[in-house]
Amino acid sequence: MTTRRMTLKHIEAFRIVMQTGSMTEAARRLHTSQPQVSRLVSQLEAIVGFLLFERRGTRLLPSLDGKRFFQDVEKAFVGLEGLEGAASNIRSFGGDRLAVAAMPRIAGGLLSKAVAQFKAEHPETLLTIHSGAAATVNTWVSSGLCELGLAILYGDDVPGMQVQTLLTMDCVAVLPIGHRLAKRKQVAAADLEGEAFVSFPLGSAPRERIDRVLAAAGARTRTVLESDLGASVCALVAAGLGVSVLNPLAALEERRNLELAVRAFVPAIPVRLALLLPPDATDSRLVSAFADQVRTVIASDLEVIRPYRR
């Protein structure tokens, strides 16, 4: 003969009858019938080997053993509620930490907006923003110091890194206000012949990419200054020290605070805004959720670069 085992249904029926003092009310709360609740309680009594209730006419009173058993049942349910709380905490990333790296302009703009919106939905998550030049961002992510990076890629994927392209856009020409080329809607590489040029450092991906395009057009510029930060390049151009070519995200952000002309540039030099993940990164709900938040910000807040998006 098979021995019946105690189930959660038995315990739930007993617990609610104890709380309400009524099998009818327990049936209502459990969305079942009163005979079914009575059957579950009777089965539980057979399983535990003692009476849980004393029947006095139509009244149902807990037995002394039933009261003692109910105390242990309540302790078990407190434990279950604790597990529910733990699950909720995990589900909402409570107590989790996420370190994100980005170049200064992205960190101060797009990334900060994504962080603010993410924190509004997940206030218990601690997010840390690290800001640095492109090479520094790559190092932080590849070494595992940061779980996620945001970067502008001027060339192929970063070796040894997982890359997810968020959007592709074309570089623009940046010029001082009043420059002869600022009157045009579009600046060609050949138009920069002889111009003082603010460039990126030798050996960097943007420098090599832009130099190839200028050389192919036969445009010999005079490199007068170098910087590895788009914000600095724009500030130097706005100061009238030269012209430059760089990604539209940095240029249009800086134009809000600087006297700077931004024009379309040909031939097109496509660049990518991308998420960088460590080479051995595993699937993480937290990283995926934050990446989705970044995509949401891009879709809603980067309308300004639409003319230069692909």
Score class of each variant (00 low, 15 high):
T20R: 07
G21R: 12
G21L: 04
S22N: 07
S22R: 01
A26L: 01
A27L: 00
R28S: 07
R28L: 12
R28D: 05
R28M: 06
R29V: 10
R29T: 09
R29H: 07
R29K: 13
T32V: 05
T32L: 02
T32H: 00
S33T: 15
Q34E: 07
Q36V: 15
V37P: 00
S38Y: 05
R39K: 12
L40K: 11
L40V: 04
L40H: 05
S42Y: 08
Q43F: 12
L44K: 03
E45A: 02
I47W: 00
V48R: 11
V48G: 10
G49F: 01
G49M: 01
G49Y: 00
L51M: 11
L51Q: 15
R55L: 03
G57P: 01
T58E: 08
R59C: 03
L60V: 09
L61S: 09
P62M: 01
P62S: 01
G66L: 02
K67A: 14
R68H: 14
F69Q: 00
F69D: 02
F70M: 09
Q71Y: 14
Q71C: 14
Q71F: 14
D72K: 13
D72P: 05
V73W: 02
V73H: 02
E74R: 09
V78D: 11
V78Q: 11
G79F: 14
L80N: 06
L80S: 09
L80G: 05
L80I: 13
G82S: 01
G82R: 00
L83Y: 09
L83R: 12
G85D: 15
A86I: 08
A86Y: 13
A86K: 14
A87I: 13
A87P: 00
A87K: 15
S88Y: 08
N89Y: 11
N89P: 07
I90G: 04
I90Q: 05
R91E: 12
R91C: 04
R91M: 08
S92T: 10
S92A: 10
G94Q: 10
G95W: 02
G95V: 01
R97N: 12
R97W: 04
